[in-house]
Nucleic acid binder design. Sequence first.
DNA 1: TTGTACGCGTTATCAA
DNA 2: TTGATAACGCGTACAA
Lengths: 338, 338
Amino acid sequence: MTTRSIPTLDDVAKLAAVSTATVSRCLNAPEQVSDSTRKRVNKAVKALGYTPNFGARFMAAKRTNTIGAIIPTMENAIFARGLQAFQDELRAKGYTLLVASSSYKSDIEEEQIRSLIARGADGLLLIGHDRSSAIMQYLLTRKVPALVAWAHDPSAVLPSIGFDNFEAMCGLAKHVIAMGHSRIGMISAPTESNDRARARVQAVRHSMQEAGISTQNLKLIETEYGIETGAIAFQSLVGNSQVPTVVFCGNDVLAVGAMRQAKKMGIVVPDEISITGFDDIELARLVEPELCTVHVPHRKMGATAASILVDMVEGKSFPQTTQLDVKIELRDSLSTRL
Amino acid sequence: MTTRSIPTLDDVAKLAAVSTATVSRCLNAPEQVSDSTRKRVNKAVKALGYTPNFGARFMAAKRTNTIGAIIPTMENAIFARGLQAFQDELRAKGYTLLVASSSYKSDIEEEQIRSLIARGADGLLLIGHDRSSAIMQYLLTRKVPALVAWAHDPSAVLPSIGFDNFEAMCGLAKHVIAMGHSRIGMISAPTESNDRARARVQAVRHSMQEAGISTQNLKLIETEYGIETGAIAFQSLVGNSQVPTVVFCGNDVLAVGAMRQAKKMGIVVPDEISITGFDDIELARLVEPELCTVHVPHRKMGATAASILVDMVEGKSFPQTTQLDVKIELRDSLSTRL
DNA sequence: TTGTACGCGTTATCAA
DNA sequence: TTGATAACGCGTACAA
């Protein structure tokens, strides 16, 4: 039982009695190697338990078959589900996924972008378009293909896949307003450096104006992502003089927090107040009443994002932007205001 | 506007009119460089937007300040929360986290372990002790520090941090049995290559035997992780001749699925049947009735795991196993059987 | 305090 | 089909 050191290409080559070039070819272009030597090499690889060193491979080939993804947080079910689909699809295409999370902080995101690129990520998946010009410059000079997901903006520099947050929320808001609601509350994630959140808020404003309702009637609270924060926001929203008849929430988690708080305060949903969410995570159908929300095809988005990004990396043609359809899920947490 | 290529150490050195060695020192051991030259070098680094190439750095230094983590799935809130804490703590200590997921498949996990090690991960976080001897050999010969989380086993080869799944479930099961339950159902995640799931099932068996209840009275169903799968399992459990009075679930997600199915079938929880979970994710307190479960300190586990793993990587002393306390949360989905 | 020069493990070019 | 060999970008003895 001697201490064996980590086997290298050279070790494999020696054991198989060939050159390192041949071993390398066996691994990367097997069809260029004769059957007999390939068998011999593969045997040596197994015997030694050889694994290529990515650092060296990266330096020599400038490719890693690795895709990096930076998401705001792993604690959010929507990203988790989409990301899992993203990874599954990448695997099928022979790529490995590396994930980093930014905690919704743009400076951390920048750091992660640099880190993943330095590590040789062939392509990057990012969330949303909001990004400092410095880091955009960096991305462009490094020429690393980057795809923005969870967003849809044909005019943006980076290609994107997602849905139109503005349109989606408009659809819901118009429906709600048509039901007779005019005193409106909204709980949103912080809109600074979060284009998705901003678009959803603007959609509500826009829909109100279009219906001739003064946006003075909109009570907006911005708060961080969480059930607890949603509950607190709801409390202060209904504590005001003008209690809204409906509360739009920027995502399902905030909405569920609002619903919990309503129950706690003895406010009946939807009889006394309607609540809506966004995303349609599993949770939305587990609460009572079921949450009215906007369904987003996360898995499909993740899988499609993988396809597109791989095409980008491999120099194939790809769409500048891909729009996915959302569906408004009218459920029991929303009712008509007579 | 010329096409600039990626700046290297050499470029920085030239611009600052020093040698590459000095630049390297500026980055890795600033105290060895005089103030004036350091300033000059830092300026050049900024001007060029230089980022070290990890591949090259890894090859030369054999360290990357990177920790890899392989979790079964990102879609599970328990891992997500613990992992986020893990990452936050790592960041504070100057390490970067790379995440991969195995979809609960051991062959994929092996692939990911090799991949992360080849990429130069200084240390690895793994979930659970179940692992083939081949990959254990690989881990040991590569001498990469690896810490097992979500498990606690003083006798295992790899150091671990977590809680005693067996003891935790025994605590709950004994309490339930003392409440008068004797016809028992259980919905578990697949126990093959999942020591946590296995320990929880064994705990129920053990507790029954200890109370003099034949384990013939245990109806066990193994199914994959998910709300829907939990619902299906529950349905077949109550479709049997001997309907259980309590259903233990291996985790909260399965339990919530069971509760949803019970509601759908018009079976009142806990009056007609009690249901328990494990983990205490946020969801547990959002369903109605609130789910009786075992609370696990995920965040604390993640943060502590980071500390220990960094100590391992840096050659400091560390505990072979760290046990965290769990707490049984007696909530309304469990009631006495008279 | 700073510079020179070598080696890390791989891929790719070119010849054989 | 195979082999020799030059990069790739960095850290670090060792020397100055």
